[in-house]
């Protein structure tokens, strides 16, 4: 037996999941299920779409309508799902490589269109599934199998990217802040438009090992100690923000939603008949 939440929202036969010991993805996946549970959505009204990667294994375990699609193309498929059935609550679960590298173009255009999709990025700063190659969110100077002497690329700030591209809800939380993930996913699902939640995860097996970050517990301690809430950040002196990153809700606005605008076009022709 297991908890009622897991029983009701996961495919028990597929558990335990294949993620490594201490991987933060399980915590974030559970928070998404809690968010859906607390909002009281019918399971048949929710569609979870993913691409390829560690994070993208999640829909295999979640008991909703699910789609496991091509690498980087989760948002393209999700756009199709949403256009075909605008009443569905579409959630995209993606990783940093899936969403920011191969799927980067889909991300900016889904943001630009403001289509009502909730995107949750499980950001573990590395390509875990394929063996620890550095990703667009691996911090400069950090190591990966393809950057054994340190990564010279500058890393993406995914929240700024989504905001700049036009997403109407942008937030960041971490695997340590599991309740914050839940609250942000709830707010994202309630937002009528493109919502982007970056959930910073931990990868003790590759990112942690390559960069001598210690075990899962020390990586969780790092998330705990190196985050500052965006609400508190303005009041803190600059030196206290050094080496830290911000969590919280960064941006929220109201813009015309894509499927609604499309429906207006259809309606305008139907009235003419």
């Amino acid at each position: 037996m297991t908890s009622t939440l897991v029983e009701n929202h996961f495919r028990i036969g597929k558990l335990p999941h294949i993620w490594c010991p201490g991987c933060g993805h399980g915590i974030i996946m559970r928070s998404i299920a809690v968010a859906i549970d607390e909002l009281g959505y019918d399971k048949n009204d929710v569609c979870v779409v993913s691409g390829i990667g560690c994070s993208s294994r999640a829909p295999g375990y979640m008991d909703f309508n699910t789609l496991h699609t091509l690498h980087g193309r989760a948002l393209a498929y999700a756009t199709g799902v949403k256009m075909a059935n605008p009443d569905l609550k579409v959630i995209v679960i993606t990783g940093d490589g899936d969403c920011a590298a191969i799927g980067g173009n889909h991300l900016i255009h889904a943001s630009r269109r403001n289509i009502d999709i909730t995107t949750v990025v499980f950001n573990n700063n590395i390509y875990g599934m394929t063996g620890g190659q550095y990703s667009p969110t691996t911090p400069t100077g950090e190591k990966g199998t393809t950057a054994p002497f340190g990564n010279i690329d500058r890393n993406f700030d995914l929240c700024n990217l989504a905001k700049g591209a036009g997403a109407t809800y942008v937030a960041r939380s971490t695997a340590y802040h599991a309740n914050m993930v839940k609250q942000q996913v709830k707010a994202a699902l309630e937002n009528k438009g493109f919502s982007f939640v970056e959930a910073v995860s931990i990868c003790p097996t590759y990112y942690g090992r390559k960069n001598k970050k210690g075990d899962a517990v020390s990586m969780m301690e790092y998330l705990k100690n190196s985050t500052v809430n965006v609400k508190a950040a303005d009041k803190l002196p600059k030196e206290k923000l050094e080496g830290k990153f911000l969590v919280g809700e960064f941006y929220k606005s109201e813009e015309p939603e894509y499927t609604e605008e499309y429906k207006k076009i259809i309606d305008s022709f139907q009235k003419e008949r």
Binding site: M1, S3, V6, G24, I27, R30, A178
Partner: peptide, 11 residues
Amino acid sequence: LLCPDYAIYLG
């Protein structure tokens, strides 16, 4: 809340 594997829970 923090168990990645759902191996501990309040029931």
